[in-house]
Computed example of a mutant assay.
Amino acid sequence: MKEDYYDILGITKNASAAEIKKAYRKKALKYHPDKNPGDASAEDMFKKSAEAYEVLSNADKKARYDQFGHAAFQGGGGFGGGGMNMDDIFSQFGDIFGSAFGGGGGGFSGFGGFGGGGQPRVKGSNLRIRVKLSLKEVANGVEKKVKVRRKVQAEGVTYTTCSTCNGRGQVTKITNTILGRMQTAATCSTCGGSGQILDKKPNDADAQGMKMVEETVSIKIPAGVEEGMQLKVPGKGNDAPGNGVPGDLLVAMETEIHDTLKREGDNLHYDLYVSISDAVLGISKEIDAVEGKVRIKLEPGIQSGKILRLRGKGISSINGYGTGDLLVHVNVWTPKELNKEQKEFFERMQGDDNFEPKPEKSDKSFFEKVKDMFS
């Protein structure tokens, strides 16, 4: 079982954004690979801390994690967080280390050369797509294959070291101020921060040595996802020039509207309309469920507003806590027009003791039913 993100950083759930950042910096500096060369356990803690910070420093991801735990980030690299490598960490959070480990944002010379004189690695841009899911796919999870047009480095492309920044990706500027000489660093405008410039390229490549290709990407979507959730597929975005790392493919979930079933959390709701005669005599009815049709039995004398609960016929919980229920709402349909014989029958029943409303103590009011649904 994965460790709790709050425990990894040594903070509580009500920690402020500043406290989260401070706790991460403390952990990152303690377990930084430059400070612990060859220590696999320190490297592991360094990655775990970065993963925890990536989620908890983002308000949306933090809210999702607080609600669903690690299950919110399962499938294809997760909904943010998880599967981070050193390139991800230094490209996203290098500024947090400050100058504690020298050169260019606190890099680390052992992984991709982000520190002291090493060559930087630029990350390619992310791609975003939307995937439509049926209610059945949401309930059970599904593997989708989608076609993605992404930029990749063309074959035969070669690069040379940028002469402006000497491969560092940054240029420094020294300014004289009333406080003394101040040194600032900025991304190299010649190479865009990659430390390399294009040397040779084939005719089908663009000015950066890239070409557009169509690729089929397989995406594993866990059961229980909700509208608007976002899945990250690492490395399936656009490539970056030179020795850069590819961006990510961000997949937004879009759920199709079902004809008869309505979702509420892990539960499903179904409105069943029955005639007065069926309600009086009782009947067996076939209704829609996620996996197809199911048959239910209505007892004689069933009342309008009665809710029948079919356990385990709802949506699988994204946090792994079982499956929701299918709630069938019984509505007795009153005819608006009657023929002469029908009207005479109901006229004879007016005042009949058996037709007078006699709610039992066990029959809940409308407000009690609403309260039960939301409790």
Score class of each variant (00 low, 15 high):
Met1Tyr: 10
Met1Pro: 12
Leu9Val: 00
Ser16His: 06
Ala18Glu: 15
Ala18Ser: 11
Lys21Tyr: 03
Arg25Gly: 01
Lys26Ile: 11
Leu29Val: 07
Tyr31Gly: 00
His32Lys: 08
Lys35Asp: 15
Lys35Ala: 15
Pro37Cys: 03
Gly38Trp: 09
Gly38Phe: 10
Ala40Ile: 15
Ser41Phe: 09
Phe46Thr: 00
Ser49Met: 06
Ser57Gly: 13
Ala59His: 12
Lys62His: 08
Ala63Thr: 06
Tyr65Asn: 05
Tyr65Gln: 06
Asp66His: 01
His70Met: 05
His70Glu: 12
Gly76Glu: 14
Gly83Val: 13
Gly83Thr: 15
Asn85Tyr: 00
Asn85Thr: 06
Asp87Asn: 11
Ile96Lys: 07
Ala100Phe: 06
Gly102Phe: 12
Phe108Gly: 13
Gly113Ile: 07
Gly113Val: 02
Val122Gln: 07
Ser134Tyr: 01
Val138Met: 07
Gly141Thr: 03
Gly141Lys: 09
Lys147Arg: 13
Val148Phe: 00
Arg150Pro: 08
Arg150Asp: 09
Gln153Leu: 02
Cys165Asp: 08
Arg168Gln: 14
Val171Asp: 02
Thr172Trp: 09
Ile174His: 02
Thr175Glu: 13
Asn176Ser: 11
Ala186Met: 12
Ser194Met: 01
Ser194Gln: 03
Gln196Ile: 14
Asp206Pro: 03
Gln208Asn: 09
Glu214Gly: 14
Val217Ile: 07
Val225Glu: 07
Val225Tyr: 03
Glu227Arg: 02
Gly228Met: 02
Leu231Met: 15
Lys232Asn: 13
Val233Trp: 01
Lys236Leu: 03
Gly247Phe: 00
Leu249Pro: 14
Glu254Ile: 02
His258Phe: 00
Thr260Gln: 15
Tyr270Asp: 08
Tyr270Phe: 10
Asp271Gly: 04
Tyr273Asn: 14
Ser277Glu: 14
Val280His: 04
Leu281Cys: 02
Ile287His: 08
Asp288Trp: 06
Asp288Thr: 03
Gly292Leu: 07
Val294Pro: 12
Gly305Phe: 00
Ile307Asp: 12
Arg309Pro: 03
Leu310Gln: 15
Lys313Phe: 11
Ser316Ile: 10
Asn319Val: 05
Tyr321Asn: 14
Gly324Lys: 06
Asp325Phe: 03
Asp325Thr: 11
Val328Arg: 03
Val330Asn: 01
Glu347Ser: 08
Asp352His: 14
Asp353Cys: 01
Asn354Ser: 15
Lys358His: 13
Ser362Gln: 11
Ser365Thr: 07
Ser365Gly: 09
Phe374Tyr: 11
